[in-house]
């Protein structure tokens, strides 16, 4: 998995972390709230579907973990 990591996305993460580190929580958390509240507002509240998705995700994850860990490049 590690060799597939998108370095460009990590650069954005570093950029945002710098903002979090150097600005008041009020500044970054206001933007974070817009993102989180809107995403969760539109979430599908279906118990059976949710549990099924979680079960499949767990099975895939376990399968991936069985494979030998790839070394970084």
């Amino acid at each position: 998995m590690l060799e597939d990591i998108d370095e460009e996305r990590l650069e954005f993460v570093r950029f945002w972390a710098k903002i979090v580190r150097e600005t008041e929580p009020e500044y970054w958390s206001r933007q974070q709230k817009i993102l989180i509240d809107s995403a969760l507002k539109s979430a599908i509240q279906n118990r059976d579907l949710y549990l099924k998705v979680k079960r499949i995700a767990r099975e895939i994850h376990q399968e991936i973990r069985k494979r030998p860990r790839s070394r970084g490049v």
Binding site: P25, E26, R30, Q32, I36, D37
Partner: peptide
Amino acid sequence: LEKKVMNVL
């Protein structure tokens, strides 16, 4: 985290 704007989470 002073003055954090609380989200739904």
